[in-house]
Design a protein around this nucleic acid. Structure first.
Lengths: 226, 226
DNA sequence: CAGTATCCGATGCGATACTG
DNA sequence: CAGTATCGCATCGGATACTG
């Protein structure tokens, strides 16, 4: 990308940050992605060569650092101090997007894989009243390969496309649009259940446990918008 | 630009905001530019057709509104509520750029026209102890067409490439790099004068008056960085 | 002045295949 | 798994000229 030939700080920052995919690469790093394959999961439409190129560019600009890990063939990518300080930029983008581009979310922006991956990395199992909770999601209108997911809340949170073998505690079923709306905090979980666009199945106690932790991370943004 | 096929708010916002030139168009609007020609002055390397296209896109996304003005052939562009709320995004970009991309400012990012235009729109003459102050800038190393500028601080601030006829109160001369560094708050005015990379000429009183108003608008950012 | 139309070249980037 | 190399098309956008 050619520069803007302007000394203005907005222009200089934009030259680096606003290249295609770059804000999303930064988002992945800010969400804790470290390995190349972590990043790819959240950037599934991005070709590996382009991801590699962007990471090099970010490294070159001192935003990303590549750390080799003892005993592993490949290293980890992390944000430098300069990269950390881009957080307000990405957050501001996200807040604006949450508030103002809801209507732009088209059907082919909806991807069950990205949704589940985002849940897996943003839901925390701390304070769970049971030792382990196994939740089976069924995305009713997704293509076969993306219909069934298992989230296992244990010491870690785990995401599987195959039944991991444990007994299922809670079954969640819904269409994809509803699930995304709930996850983004546009629709209240209770409202989705009431309207029967979403259903939870399981013992009262397990369902309650699940509800207590299944909170949209976008609720602050949703509240700020209102 | 093709979208990212992600429902994530960061992605949806990035699809719109991070297109080439768009952050700079927004910057211009946020700095008060209203007419097509205002915008062009701050975007001198952008072709009018592309500016027109970007404005249409922004209008289409509900970020910019085009208001026709009574009795004028062309209207004014303004930010809608949604556009106003992009201010934190552009500001965050600018703050990061100010802090982290100083070293990336190359010689051909330096443009006397943009510098003077930015001064003209960001310096305010309120509180000036004289009724009018005429300042002549000479950018020693700029090409002939961009060497000499007059800023007239009156009820309004005016910028001319020709001597506007008034007597000059203060003469400022410097090389372009120094001027930009001072304007961006990287170099203190006093330090630039001491090192003789910049010189002010004029009566003691007029020079003092000028110094009192010639403040970098980036000082808050510079302070935050330190 | 305030834009629009057209053209064409560079290149960004997506797809695919490949390697340590 | 963690990337890299290559290829070719699409498109973005820069230049220029034009119009109301």
């Amino acid at each position: 990308m050619k520069g803007y030939s302007q000394f203005c700080p907005v222009a200089k920052a934009a030259e680096i940050i606003t290249m295609r995919w770059t804000p999303l690469v930064l988002r992945e790093l800010m969400c804790g992605g470290k390995r190349f394959s972590d990043l790819r999961r959240g950037l599934c439409q991005m070709s590996p060569s382009l991801l590699s190129k962007r990471l090099k560019e970010l490294e070159h600009h001192g935003i990303v650092e590549r750390l080799s890990v003892e005993g592993e063939s490949s290293g980890h990518y992390t944000l430098t101090e300069s990269g950390q300080q881009l957080r307000p930029v990405i957050e501001a983008l996200g807040e604006w997007g949450h508030r103002w581009s809801r209507s732009q979310v088209s059907d082919d922006d909806l991807d069950a894989g990205l949704l589940m991956w985002d849940m897996r990395r943003r839901l925390s199992c701390t304070g769970l009243p049971v030792k382990r909770l196994v939740v089976h999601f069924e995305v009713m209108d997704a293509p076969a390969a993306q219909r069934r997911w298992w989230l296992v809340f244990d010491s870690e949170v785990d995401l599987c496309l195959q039944n991991p073998g444990y007994d299922v505690d809670v079954e969640v079923s819904s269409d994809l649009r509803t699930m995304v709306d709930v996850w983004l905090g546009y629709t209240d979980t209770a409202a989705a259940l009431r309207s029967q666009n979403m259903a939870f199945t399981g013992s009262r106690a397990k369902v309650r446990a699940f509800k207590s932790m299944f909170k949209s991370p976008f609720l602050p943004a949703a509240a700020a918008a209102a």
